[in-house]
Design a protein around this nucleic acid. Sequence first.
DNA 1: TACAATAACGATAATCATTATCATTATCGC
DNA 2: GCGATAATGATAATGATTATCGTTATTGTA
Lengths: 132, 132
Amino acid sequence: MDTSMKTKFSRQREAIRKQLSGRHDHPTAETLYEELKEEFPRLSVATVYRNLNQLVESGEIAKINLNGPARFDYNPEPHSHFVCKGCGCVVDMSDNNDEALIAARKNFDGDIESCSSQFYGMCSQCIKETAQ
Amino acid sequence: MDTSMKTKFSRQREAIRKQLSGRHDHPTAETLYEELKEEFPRLSVATVYRNLNQLVESGEIAKINLNGPARFDYNPEPHSHFVCKGCGCVVDMSDNNDEALIAARKNFDGDIESCSSQFYGMCSQCIKETAQ
DNA sequence: TACAATAACGATAATCATTATCATTATCGC
DNA sequence: GCGATAATGATAATGATTATCGTTATTGTA
Ligand SMILES: [Mn+2]
Ligand SMILES: [Mn+2]
Ligand SMILES: [Zn+2]
Ligand SMILES: [Zn+2]
């Protein structure tokens, strides 16, 4: 992408940003698109992808690659996620990777900038439902 | 998939297994396909995907989801990876997630089974080339 | 306010990775 | 060998994402 390009305001990007803010379910582009169609009946799914990519590129949001379509996180700060094997939900974990980073840097011949971890298992909700 | 199905031997699956064994570059299905075409000129890419999925399903190998096509790991034991932002290489890290697992379980209301971490940065090779 | 430059849009075609389908072939137990 | 069926190869189909392109909206300036 051309870095000399100065970004202009767009109602769509603003709406996408807002839609993603303050939530912790890490929605996909498709989910955001479906939700925003109400407010923007003419919205194109390409516009959602375009803007999400731009926001990721600028470091304002984060992209999460797991199985299936990419998910997006309003919080770009490195943090861990729990992925439920039952319902597929992706939940924020409140741990700091700092120790892992420090440990990893000791025996690695390169420059480690960041770390992202995923934990897998069953969320409390799914455990309940399985118990029935 | 039907669990009552007993798997039969296949030369192709054996070759895929062998091709993946003993290497640490975590190739994609496409890469393995290209490499195996020499030995199996009639090989279909669908066969590679089919068998890789089967091996993942049986827990014999692991699937790694990052940006781009999935990569496969002959080592199914949970371990961390370093992903180079320069060349895109994926390198094994010799750390144990046990501490991270124990810490995460303490303040999480659910059943955490496993953990996978990725470290991002520049590999030593890329650092050298950038310095030039 | 008008206007030129251009970023962003919406619609949709194209691409890429992966899976499904199906007729044929290979494996396996008898 | 023979029957049952898992696995294959070819290819169509799907799902996610990106590229294209003509139109629209934003922005800076006259
Ligand atoms: Mn998060
Ligand atoms: Mn590995
Ligand atoms: Zn769950
Ligand atoms: Zn590198």
